[in-house]
């Protein structure tokens, strides 16, 4: 399967002439990359995806795929696979007919359709369910049918709009692994829209964090997590402590703070709450100057977890703080 690079060039989209959904967004997505658009609802991530798919026409700016300007190419000629949040499976057709749909639209001969549908269903471990209707499948199975239906046409680009959003946590995690595995195996360019930062961090090669129609930061998951550029990114990704005491705001991740005896620490404080999160505990510590800090401490060896009310000292290295733009 060949894959294609995607380029959004200064793309803007307004709705009803007033609501700016996407505001001058420029993205360079490499061929074969797992690229996530991450942000809260209404940040423009889905609209950006829909412009790549062709469901929305940008007011200004161009969309390129594989080096070709496709801004004016209609949806059905773009050769992209799309997986919707609701799966959008055709309820009146069987699993096999759903998967065969794209091939049928391409006038692929019948024997070849049968062969490719069977192999696509095998790829997502659904062999044997060909004759079922979507309504007879579980959420996870429907998800796989949607994936098989999008992949069977061998698209250059696979677009996913919160495809795992409707699944429960356990299944979602399993599908994260499977989707990532499948994407790597096929080498297809995958654009993944999500509001779940954990999901984006776990799966992506690169992430674009969006806010109010603009891209706040683009980078690898570690870059985004370790070196957030703006206050919004720092706050949106994981837990964060914002230090406003210097000329510029700085961010400090909870796991970078060490707890110890108050005498040797930078700050003294009292533990307000202790939340065990499995393998680690997240503490909320009220410092002497009344600021609240989040501190994550992993449980090494036999050290007993601390309890609410304990007096502790907080220390960190200045190199672990990240200056933010604002």
């Amino acid at each position: 399967m060949s894959s294609a690079a995607i380029k959004l060039d200064q793309v803007t989209k307004t709705f009803d002439g007033k609501v700016i959904a996407v505001d001058g967004v420029t993205l360079d997505i490499e061929a074969g990359e797992f690229f996530s658009l991450l942000g809260p609802s209404g940040c423009g991530k889905t609209t950006s995806l829909r412009m790549i798919a062709g469901f929305e026409q940008p007011d200004s700016g161009r969309v390129h795929v594989g080096g070709q300007d496709i801004t004016d190419v209609p949806v059905h000629k773009r050769d992209m696979g799309m997986v919707f949040q609701s799966y959008a499976l055709f309820p009146h057709r069987t699993v096999a007919e759903n998967v065969a749909f794209g091939l049928r639209m391409r006038d692929v001969p019948k024997p070849e359709i049968a062969r490719r549908v069977a192999s696509a269903l095998a790829q997502v471990a659904l062999t044997g369910l060909e004759a079922r209707k979507p309504g007879q499948l579980s959420g996870g199975q429907q998800q796989r049918v949607a994936l098989a239906r999008a992949l069977v046409i061998e698209p250059r680009v696979l677009l996913c709009d919160e495809p795992l959003g409707a699944l429960d946590r356990k299944l979602r995690q399993q599908m994260q692994f499977e989707l990532k595995e499948l994407q790597r195996r096929l080498g297809v360019t995958l654009v993944f829209v999500t509001h779940d930062q954990e999901e984006a961090l776990a799966m992506s090669d690169r992430i674009a964090v969006m806010n109010q129609g603009k891209v706040e930061q683009i980078g690898s998951p570690t870059e985004i997590y370790e070196k957030p550029r703006t206050r919004f990114v720092a706050d949106f990704i994981g837990e964060i402590n914002l230090l406003d005491d210097g000329p510029k705001p700085r961010a400090l991740r909870p796991e970078k703070i060490r707890l110890g005896p108050a005498a040797e620490a930078r700050l003294a404080g009292t533990i307000e709450t202790a939340n065990f999160v499995g393998g680690a505990t997240l503490y909320r510590v009220r410092a002497a100057d009344n600021r609240a800090f989040l501190v994550r401490e992993t449980h090494a060896g036999e050290r007993a977890p601390r309890a609410a009310g304990d007096a502790v000292g907080l220390s960190w290295n200045d190199t672990d703080t990240v200056s933010l733009e604002g």
């Binding site: 059905h76 609701s86 959008a88 794209g102 639209m105």
Partner: peptide, 13 residues
């Protein structure tokens, strides 16, 4: 669901 028709279009219809 409108997205059914969109899905069909994205598949080449």
């Amino acid at each position: 669901d409108e997205r059914l028709e969109q899905a069909a279009r994205s598949l080449g219809a």
